Simulated scan of single mutants.
Amino acid sequence: MKKGKFVISLDFELVWGVFDHITLNKKIAYFDNTRKVIPHMLACFEKHEIKVTWATVGMLFNENWEEWLANLPDEKPTYTNLKLDAYAYGLEHRSAGLDRFFFAPDLIRFIQSTPGQELATHTYSHYYCLETGQTKRQFECDLDLAKKMATQFGATLHSLVFPRNQWNPDYLFSCQERGITQLRSNPDAWYWKDTSQSTLATKLFRTGDAYLPLGSTSYPMEKVTADFVTAQPASRFLRPHHGLSFLNSLRLQRIKNEMLQAAKEGAVYHLWWHPHNFGDHPKESMEALQEIAKWYLHLQAKFGFESVTMADLTAKLY
């Protein structure tokens, strides 16, 4: 009997993933909570023997602004939407005294020292692969720099998650050339097809799907496809804690039911979120994660449900 596979991937970004949507001085507690909760996440994963892929923005590897300024790509992205320019944003905020939200080498080393964790990439600058103005050459320069930063930490990158899930098939060969063997792809549902554009309908369905059975979730190993690199579809986004308790219960039960189905059917279930999604309600968010972790151990004991990283999953295909 096939054993189901439980994959967790985290988009580790801090400020670099959301700066175009926030006012930084209003998010100090939010990002401080994020930094504090990450070691608790890691302790939970270690205790429950859960393997996790940490898709990490390369800029977080820098120790300070001096190192950040010394690590510039050969070509920067030339987005038409200037609000997406991480380099301009960094220059504007480097004197804000909030370096801990822009750099996280301490947390990266914590990840590396925790058993079962895979250090992966979320590109160097949280690069948007479907935005107008940027080019494939600029993406390649960005990825080269991400690889360089990881090498300085003794890590080799094999897995990648496109920022904001902007899946660009034209860039897959560039990934393969740089040693990337697997990427997370989007769920197989119409409201996840184009993540660079969001309509009211796609937002409603993506939100509703977290609580109600609207779309596909787990999938057979055969659905993990290879086109230059292995594409591993996401199953479910662990949405942030909600103020309404019944929605939190629905969200958690939805995930547990999907995990159970995958374990019974010998299928893959891929859960993902951003560590900063725990920033507003760290205590309640950790309680939910603990419940998911305990449920995983139950399914592991009963059905042989197996926790794997993205790299592990690809390795099991060959």
Rank of each mutant, 00 (worst) to 15 (best):
F102L: 02
G215R: 13
K302Y: 12
D170G: 09
L107E: 03
G304C: 05
E49D: 14
F12V: 04
L212I: 10
H126K: 07
L289E: 05
K264I: 14
K47I: 01
P115W: 11
K223I: 10
P39K: 10
F101A: 01
Q176Y: 14
R35W: 00
G116P: 06
Y128D: 03
L244M: 14
F246S: 13
T53M: 00
S185Q: 01
V52W: 04
F31E: 05
F102K: 00
W192C: 02
Y269V: 11
L91V: 13
P282W: 06
M221F: 13
K316Q: 15
W273T: 09
N277R: 02
I292D: 11
Q197F: 13
G266D: 00
T181D: 12
E92F: 02
V161P: 01
W192A: 01
Q112E: 08
Q134L: 14
T217G: 14
V37R: 07
L69G: 13
G90S: 00
F303S: 10
F61C: 04
P213M: 07
E265F: 11
P163I: 00
S285H: 04
G208E: 08
F228T: 13
G97L: 00
A88E: 11
E66H: 10
S125T: 09
E131V: 07
E92T: 13
Y191S: 11
M259T: 02
A104I: 00
R251A: 11
E306F: 02
W68P: 09
E49P: 04
K148F: 12
Q112Y: 06
F173Y: 13
V7T: 03
Y79F: 03
W272A: 06
A86E: 04
K147G: 11
Y30H: 08
D280P: 13
T56M: 04
I22F: 02
L84P: 00
